[in-house]
Design a binder for these strands. Structure first.
Lengths: 221, 221
DNA sequence: CTCAAGTCACCAACAGTTGTTCAGTCAAGG
DNA sequence: CCTTGACTGAACAACTGTTGGTGACTTGAG
């Protein structure tokens, strides 16, 4: 089932077009990371097989496997950050901003379980992806904290900075728990994701669910 | 630093005492799973090395590596379930029951990151631990749902069964998110765990934090 | 057209893992 | 002594990341 199994021996790229293989390698690694049940088992030889190329050919474009993986992870992280920002851009209110960010986060996570695990599951060996598990999410967390502080209501709104930080942290942990359990425990009878997101934000902001649902459904259009 | 590096060539067990090696193997595997940064990289040969025995000797006591790991996981799961039940046993109220269960869950998770990852991180390859990631937690979840339903207040208390299920599910995802992010992202400035647990239960039950804190602190005594 | 230069990628092999098997060794009990 | 249980040593095939040397193809200059 491999794309270039034996059918097309993969025509060699023309003279100044060596970069296309590099792009193919990145794409293949991304696809494998997204697909694999255990992204940390990604193998240099798997990537080579996927593209239909010899394992040694990768070293012309990346110094080693670690560099390839880090490149892919950086792209995925930027993609998620961009998606969340774009989702929140047309926000008519602080609450809409928060809802859009959270919904984008959760949907990206469940749509691409492998990528989510790779970025936030803390699974990649430290020697392969130095500081990826530890650094990733820090910027996203900051945005969520700010968005939550602006959207919260009642006594939660008028709280000190460290209270706001804790509230944002709890929201993020809730989002992360939702995504990772949803991905890993498919056997559980899960309610619709949007119900969970609605309830989650409602609980963390003090706003009624009725106020959140419309903001969430309009996301689809 | 290996315990039996070369110092004690490990005296062979006497005639009917073959079971002691089995126990040693289980202990060593448990220790390694708890210690390793990536529990899924546990190796049959590591276990053998830890005990100071030949890799082949394991096959006298377990049919294969999978059986050994499953045995250890079952023990850990039973330990966690027992701890949660015991913590909740002297509960003076439904809320105290819930607080005790949640606190026991979180503290067990952060005290033994490796075991927590192994049980709930969905990391073990499916061919090695069939259905462990999917089945584990189902019983715990049932207990949490029941405990939450009894402890909730306001409109949350008088909700339909599927609403209670969703509420319990959300509480569990929040707990899981807290534990797993706490374990994997040590660089984040975390508030004290008990503050987070208090806030988390408060948010999910509708009870004021002041009502929860005393139940949590008395846990220590 | 001819042909050297430069790019692109491959082949074969390396040392190191891993889980697992199987014939055999060692020591003690009857 | 001989059986039996507890354990070992050596080997297996299947992997892994990585390297050095080599060939094939394209291009542009002469």
């Amino acid at each position: 089932m491999s794309p270039q199994e034996r059918s097309a021996p993969r025509r060699r790229n023309p003279r100044g077009q060596g970069q296309v293989l590099k792009a193919q390698l990145v794409d293949a690694a991304a696809k494998l990371l997204a697909t694999l049940d255990q992204p940390e088992t990604l193998t240099l030889r798997q990537v080579a097989r996927e593209v239909g190329v010899a394992p040694a050919s990768i070293y012309s474009h990346f110094p080693d496997l670690s560099a390839l993986i880090q490149h892919v992870l950086r792209l995925r992280y930027e993609e998620l950050a961009r998606l969340m920002d774009e989702a929140a851009r047309p926000a008519a209110s602080p609450l809409a901003d928060l809802v859009a960010r959270c919904a984008a986060y959760v949907h990206w996570g469940v749509d691409q379980p492998g990528h989510y695990r790779t970025l936030f599951g803390g699974r990649m060996p430290a020697d392969l992806v130095p500081g990826a598990a530890h650094g990733a999410g820090a910027e996203l967390l900051g945005a969520v904290v700010a968005s939550l502080a602006a959207a919260a209501t009642g006594e939660r709104k008028r709280s000190a900075a460290d209270q706001q930080w804790q509230a944002g942290l709890m929201l993020w942990t809730a989002l992360h728990g939702l995504v990772s359990l949803y991905n890993d425990h498919g056997a559980i009878p899960w309610p619709p994701l949007d119900h969970l997101i609605t309830d989650l934000i409602s609980v963390h902001t003090g706003r009624p669910a009725a106020e959140i649902t419309p903001l969430l459904t309009q996301r689809e259009g």
